[in-house]
């Protein structure tokens, strides 16, 4: 049996909105580690890894490890019916082929339950080794989303380069070229407005802007985003979910043939 009560139900709504366009079906795993998911997009370019730790739930009960296969579009449809301030509880009985989402309004004057069919999903799990990245950039998530959106109106790919100068986002297309350079900036009013660049060695990687734009749907989950980059390796784009966990996207680079 599983019962997870999340007071900040809006968080789960935002999580679904951030991944439903990238991934169709996924197994949500519930264990002592937390409520987690690892899934790949259909074109095998990106993997999303989500972790919501037990401490973030008002009630976190699962008496054994449970894996629940869900269609993310259908799950998003159901969660759209919850208010942003609602408390969301997930419930599943042992051996059941359904999961129930219960939505409670903050004043407890409206309670709804939605039952969704589960599905069997054969998914391969990937192991992500700890890596020493050539460069790690932390910047405001809204700024990163803005840059990806702006560049995608010019070109299809973005070259992300980190040098002593800062982090450069470049694209080229039929109408011309675009370059945006963000320099380290810690002289800000709030820590989440800072741009912090840790560079062990210069790095330059190329990514499809379609995918980068898709990842930025997670922007509402966090004020900051962290890009971890190493030559020839997938980028890790991480949005921390305050006091609960994270959503990480591993995005394969484009490689010179």
């Amino acid at each position: 049996m599983l019962e997870l009560r999340l007071v900040q139900g809006g968080l789960l709504k935002k999580v679904l909105e951030s991944i439903k366009d990238l991934v169709n079906d996924a197994n949500f795993d519930c264990s002592a580690t937390g409520f987690s998911l690892q899934a790949m997009d259909s074109s095998q370019v990106a993997v999303v890894a989500l972790l919501l730790r037990p401490e973030g739930f008002e009630r976190y009960w699962c008496d054994r490890n449970i894996s629940m296969g869900m269609n993310l579009n259908n799950m998003a449809k159901m969660l759209k019916c919850a208010g942003n301030d609602d408390i969301i509880t997930l419930k599943a009985e042992d051996g059941s082929d359904t999961v129930t989402f219960m939505f409670e309004s903050p004043t407890q004057d409206k309670i709804a339950d939605f039952e969704m069919k589960l599905m069997d999903i054969n998914s391969e799990r990937l192991g992500f080794p700890e890596a020493d990245y050539h460069a790690i950039v932390r910047m405001p998530s809204s700024e990163f989303a803005r840059i990806c959106k702006d560049l995608s109106s010019i070109g299809n790919t973005v070259v992300i380069s980190v040098t002593k100068e800062g982090v450069r986002f470049s694209t080229r297309g039929d109408i011309g070229t675009a370059n945006v350079v963000c320099r380290q900036n810690t002289a800000v009013d709030k820590p989440e407005e800072a741009t912090i660049i840790e560079m062990n060695e210069p790095v330059s990687l190329t990514f499809g802007l379609r995918y980068m734009n898709s990842l930025t749907k997670a922007t509402p989950l966090s004020n900051t985003v962290t890009l971890s980059l190493s030559s020839g390796l997938p980028a890790v784009v991480e949005y921390r979910i305050a006091e609960m966990g994270y959503i990480r996207f591993y995005l394969a680079p484009k490689i010179e043939e």
Partner: peptide
Amino acid sequence: DPKQGNIMSFFKRV
């Protein structure tokens, strides 16, 4: 143009 890499080629299955 560079070719899109496959994410499966970078990580081991566990």
